[in-house]
Design a protein around this nucleic acid. Structure first.
Lengths: 245, 245
DNA sequence: CTCTATATGTACGATGCCGTACATATCTTT
DNA sequence: AAAGATATGTACGGCATCGTACATATAGAG
């Protein structure tokens, strides 16, 4: 599918004032994001931030035991590398491509240069960071209280929102790593959804057939995150939310 | 215990350059934080930020079902109300006093005024926010993979770090709400720790007798959060980390 | 000093997920 | 077409936690 690439496919880049976009454009580099690529490891100093378009990146925590759990999902609504401008430069998590696609890359220093102009870029990035915080918080809650069945629904919906189609390329093994459960647990949960006619899958290709039912089967966590993300990230930044004062 | 209060008892306030401290001082209001007081509810617009000194505040998520789970703990190392400067003004969580004490309160507008001077205040607040993010992420992981026994240890250590003594005033019922488990589960876990001579408790008074052993019994999550918080929040802000560029 | 509220202890079946083992199905390579 | 690799299906005992019920202990109020 040879479709054209455009920075506006990322919601954050699209929301920036024209002036900022013009300044940044020459520095935005389109990069391919193959499945499984690690953008940074736990503790790595980050050189770039990434604005995904049709790719999905997972923030994954890998424990001493080797077990893992997804902290949050980032797609065209956000960016990878908030630690770069939050001041820490690194985080104790891994950023790994969960669904192949593209992203625009920007040198960290360029972003900071833009911040130092004291314009709207910083404010937008902070708002996005709050959306990310919401997602992490909800992940914590979900891990505590909801069943694997519910969590799978939440996870599928979060992924779906970040893809142009209703098809996910995603093995059950991979999903299990993200949810931090056994692969067999995902098999069971996915089997139930298939039996209900909600999804259809085979060898890593998942098609969502009945999204409304998927939302009904999901826990409240999906809706909370979605609603808050939409609240925090208007498609265009208006003067109303463009000033810190 | 009639000890004197001082804004420097909060690590963030203490780390600010003298010039900023001088400016803020007239606006910092010492307020009492009684156990159970709700600083803000989910969705509330926040008027103030709070810098705890010897109090501990929980960010708690309350689900539709009424079940709850703690997202993060905030004490003298941090502040309550990051959403105020991150741009969202509210969050889908409750801030509730988990351990009584005091805090300094600052009108949100004063904080934003200080931010608009483009000084070090913003940078320090962002660094703290990253520490908070780390704690939330680790909570998510911990909820997924660790036993109630381990989580209780982590939770006691996080609380202990924010108190001046090794005594916590904390019923098992309250701890259960924070961890998002049954009260009986906490009774069991606490009973084991008492049998091991690690803690001693009765009717809401917990004394930690053997902190090293408590750390050994805890999962890695405590150490990860502690280390990252210390990395991100030096006790004094130096020029090395005072500039976004 | 008694009463009552609060805090903690104990028990037990139900359940959801785990660890493990192995079977089956589908794609890829040769 | 055969062989190997990958993905998915199924089964089963084990265990942590849950939901529930009830008992006991301690503090504070009257």
């Amino acid at each position: 599918m040879p479709h054209s690439h455009n920075p506006h496919q990322n919601r954050l880049l699209a929301a920036l004032p024209a002036e900022v976009q013009t300044r940044l454009l020459p520095h935005l580099e389109l990069v391919e994001m193959p499945l499984g690529k690690v953008l940074y490891e736990s503790g790595d100093a980050m050189r770039h931030v990434y604005f995904p378009t049709d790719s999905i990146i997972s923030l994954l925590y890998v424990m001493e035991s080797g077990a893992s759990a997804e902290i949050s999902v980032v797609g065209h609504e956000g960016l990878i590398g908030v630690a770069l401008f939050m001041g820490g430069e690194s985080t104790p998590s891994r950023a790994i491509v969960q669904s192949a696609g593209f992203a625009y890359r920007l040198l960290g220093q360029r972003l900071k240069d833009e911040f130092n102009r004291h314009g709207e870029m910083l404010l937008l990035m902070l708002r996005y960071t709050q959306a990310l915080i919401t997602q992490m918080a909800q992940t914590a809650v979900c891990n505590r209280h909801h069943s694997v069945d519910q969590q799978l629904c939440r996870w599928l919906l979060l992924s779906l929102d970040r893809l142009p189609t209703n098809q996910l390329t995603m093995t059950q093994e991979l999903i299990a790593n993200m949810l931090g459960v056994r692969r067999e647990g995902v098999t069971d949960a996915a089997g139930k959804l298939q039996k209900l006619g909600v999804i259809e899958y085979s060898r890593g290709q998942i098609t969502v057939l009945d999204r409304p039912k998927l939302e009904k089967l999901s826990c409240e966590c999906y809706a909370v995150v979605k609603k808050e993300t939409d609240r925090l990230l208007p498609y265009t930044l208006t003067s109303a939310n463009a000033s810190i004062a």
